[in-house]
Design a protein around this nucleic acid. Sequence first.
DNA 1: AAGAGGTGTGTTATCGTTACCATAGCATAG
DNA 2: CTATGCTATGGTAACGATAACACACCTCTT
Lengths: 351, 351
Amino acid sequence: MTTLNDVAKLAGVSTMTVSRVINGSGYTSPAAQARVNQAIAELGYMPNVLARQLRSSRTKTLGLVLTDIANPFFTTIARGVEDAARAQGYAVMFCNTDESVDLELEYVRVLIQRRVDGVLLVPAADSSTSLDLLRTHKLPVVVLDRRLRFGEADQVRADSEGGAYDAVRHLIDLGHREIAILVGPESVSTSADRVAGYRRAMIEAGLDPASQQIRFGKYTEASGHEMTCHLLAAPTRPTAIFAGNNFIAFGAMQALRESGLEIPDDMSIVVFDDLPQGWIIPFLTVIAQPAYQIGKKAAELMLERLASDEPIEPRTFVLRSSLIVRRSSAPPRSTSKQPAPARARSMENPA
Amino acid sequence: MTTLNDVAKLAGVSTMTVSRVINGSGYTSPAAQARVNQAIAELGYMPNVLARQLRSSRTKTLGLVLTDIANPFFTTIARGVEDAARAQGYAVMFCNTDESVDLELEYVRVLIQRRVDGVLLVPAADSSTSLDLLRTHKLPVVVLDRRLRFGEADQVRADSEGGAYDAVRHLIDLGHREIAILVGPESVSTSADRVAGYRRAMIEAGLDPASQQIRFGKYTEASGHEMTCHLLAAPTRPTAIFAGNNFIAFGAMQALRESGLEIPDDMSIVVFDDLPQGWIIPFLTVIAQPAYQIGKKAAELMLERLASDEPIEPRTFVLRSSLIVRRSSAPPRSTSKQPAPARARSMENPA
DNA sequence: AAGAGGTGTGTTATCGTTACCATAGCATAG
DNA sequence: CTATGCTATGGTAACGATAACACACCTCTT
């Protein structure tokens, strides 16, 4: 491996001059620059980032800890993060925790040991020891997607409560009265918030609280399948399902198919989370989250904090989600009520 | 930041002893180990990986350069790579080139500068200057998914030619005679190989070479859409389409829908590449590639090479792909021929 | 003419760790 | 009793880069 020193010798200057030419820092004469660049080209020199980082104690690297990298919602977030980071010369290390607190902690350790400049985190659970660890090592943190009980870090997420409200309200407007909600773990803030939005819409519509059907599970297809099977077996079968994320929706759809139920004729479905275009025949009515924007905003907050000399107060951004009405939601089959017009904010691919 | 030295002072030993305790290298007494571990816990010490890597000139990190991280085929490969790497204590840096040769080169530069121990590469084009660069820097390389003109690196890929042959043969057995193939760029080996398999099947069936309909484009939805539109506008419309990857298939399906054509009644579709289960109502007849295995095998070859003292001759592994018959392929509507029984190797979710 | 300030370059001292060599105690072998 | 080898530890010198300081040479001011 050729080093700065090799280049310096060949160019007949000191290593510092070479360093200055490469980094564009300090003064260098055009003559020196020319000779250095010549030598670099000749030797095919590539700087050793490790040494640079060790000396300067800055890695220009961010850690991004996600709970499920197979979920397009999170890959889209990752893209937003990466684009924003790369625009300022930062690299991103991706870590996938599969919703495991232990794995999360392990990855945070790795990130600290690799001396990343900051960590963007989707916490697997609310009471996070990872956050404590990060704090003791004085690493700046931005929390994505999920709410934090104690607001000691920057936070960026979509409006789960409002989005859920819109979704359920849409179903109510279509004439549904028996609406079930299937979400992830109760300990994850998005679940709680989506249930809160559901409750608000149900109560506001004057529906009997006893008609609320709320099920907590996991944000996985298997869990969605299971919860739906339970729903269908229950005495009062709902006419509409609000799925807490896209995987739950897939599981639900699978269960409905197995039971020979048609969407939306026998059961309406609304989903929190959109999918990238084109993956599926546009079919599902969804609450679309600005995933890319969440990632981008989070990275920008972090970079701003890293660039600033003075300490910055923790900030929280809650981005709007939007209802997109497609073909998986319709008035219930056996309703005599006149469905009110849908209060959709946007329409896409109307059937 | 606490350092080895801080730990050493607190434990009352030399830094080397601390280093040895941490790495389990050399001799250390139980007494020393206890005091060192005590001191580490007390200080919350975390090793500086940067310094370690600089000193040992090994990063225990692999670079993985992919052409499209949004494609589940490649994310599955990535999982295989990561699992195999992590099993041996290696980390993975992911890079996404979007099929751009320039981006690929840029990322390879980054990987070299970060001193990764080896690079796993899906080359964006056949004549790859990135490979030259990697070779001059003496970095071991494994090429994934695509064939290399010059065999100077380890290679792991699925059998594109054989898979394509099986796909087309399946269509022919169903009674199709006018079969079109839509693939990616001609310069990418998978395109060429899939066309070769198509040709072999067509010729073997004794079909007029003039009936071959081959279109090169890109491995994207937009390109699949465009190519299909051209197909439909042509004088001799095919009765079946063989899509070179899943994105091309999505574009094709979109185009068919726009033209009011039903699958498989008006047009059969077979696709190279499977999707993760559950994303779509199992519908598409596909050639499933062992994506996870490709990634795993590639990482294992790399790790083996890194662990070995003696040089290893370049090796090539071609993994079998398998036909999975689902509902998107059926006999052509207006054929009078008796369809031969499908030569499917496996059946899944038969309609 | 003397100081001020910009320009260009070099020297030295680290960043935090491990490679390498040295040393010292003690047991066993011959 | 010396030789050999194992155990346990420490000292020193890098790894390849940059920060900080020093210095020399200009060109302007005043």
